[in-house]
Computed example of a mutant assay.
Amino acid sequence: MLADAATSQNARGDTRLKFIESTSALMMEMNSIDVTLLQIAARSGLNSALIKYHFGNKDGLLTAVALHASERNMDALNQLVEAKISPRKKMEIHLTGLMQLYWHHPYINVLCQYILRHSEEKYKEAIDKKIMQPFIQLQNTIIRQGIEAGEFRNVDPEMTFYIMRGACDSLIDASQQMSNASRIRGMSQAARLEYTHEVVNMLLHGISSHPLV
């Protein structure tokens, strides 16, 4: 009985994950979050009726996609805040990780904003409580640590958040423009790493109390 229940639970988890990964792959390929249930079902090889069973509706699935994409980054950010390294180094690691999140899941910001603006309250609450608020609070903690250590000037954490998010959005825009112009998908890895390095350096220089020359 217990073995059967565990097998059934694992099967449900596998099905959920297959829907999530299929939806993510489609949004990346189409450069859009506007994917249909039929497209998702075809990509996953599963019946679209199972989406309602596992997620409630399409917005439930989209919320699960956003949470899954952000999960590893949020776990790493929690650990980073407590790490015994300088706030400047924490911010460097955080910004690099944020760029990587956007690179691997370029739909993440648009998807979260869609859910926050158009979905049912329970999905809005999930995105706000599990992604937006923890992210802002943890990033603000690193900034406060830097200010207290004399490494950062007294910057506005909210403005810093929007600037950082804008830099990540620009990475995705540039990648898509290069893809359209050259008929290849996105930036090369070398160009992405160079962009990430430059953005991280500029942002750190901007918030530093003693900018490096």
Score class of each variant (00 low, 15 high):
residue 170 S to D: 11
residue 85 I to Q: 04
residue 74 M to V: 08
residue 149 A to C: 07
residue 116 L to P: 05
residue 203 L to E: 00
residue 67 L to V: 11
residue 4 D to Y: 13
residue 174 A to V: 15
residue 124 K to D: 06
residue 8 S to N: 07
residue 80 L to G: 02
residue 33 I to M: 11
residue 169 D to V: 14
residue 119 S to N: 07
residue 114 Y to V: 04
residue 68 H to R: 10
residue 139 Q to L: 08
residue 98 L to P: 03
residue 199 V to T: 12
residue 50 L to W: 02
residue 82 E to T: 13
residue 213 V to D: 15
residue 182 S to E: 11
residue 65 V to E: 02
residue 93 I to L: 04
residue 171 L to P: 02
residue 34 D to H: 12
residue 119 S to L: 09
residue 60 G to S: 04
residue 202 M to S: 04
residue 197 H to C: 06
residue 5 A to C: 07
residue 184 I to V: 14
residue 192 R to Y: 10
residue 190 A to K: 14
residue 74 M to G: 04
residue 81 V to A: 05
residue 7 T to K: 12
residue 46 L to M: 09
residue 160 T to G: 06
residue 64 A to V: 09
residue 192 R to F: 13
residue 185 R to M: 11
residue 29 E to T: 03
residue 68 H to L: 02
residue 47 N to Q: 02
residue 202 M to C: 10
residue 58 K to C: 01
residue 23 T to V: 05
residue 85 I to D: 05
residue 171 L to I: 08
residue 209 S to R: 15
residue 209 S to M: 12
residue 176 Q to G: 01
residue 183 R to L: 15
residue 60 G to L: 07
residue 116 L to C: 09
residue 99 M to W: 03
residue 105 H to I: 01
residue 205 H to R: 09
residue 14 D to M: 09
residue 97 G to Q: 09
residue 184 I to D: 11
residue 135 F to N: 00
residue 43 R to F: 06
residue 4 D to A: 15
residue 129 K to V: 00
residue 9 Q to S: 09
residue 147 I to K: 06
residue 158 E to S: 13
residue 65 V to K: 02
residue 49 A to F: 13
residue 175 S to V: 07
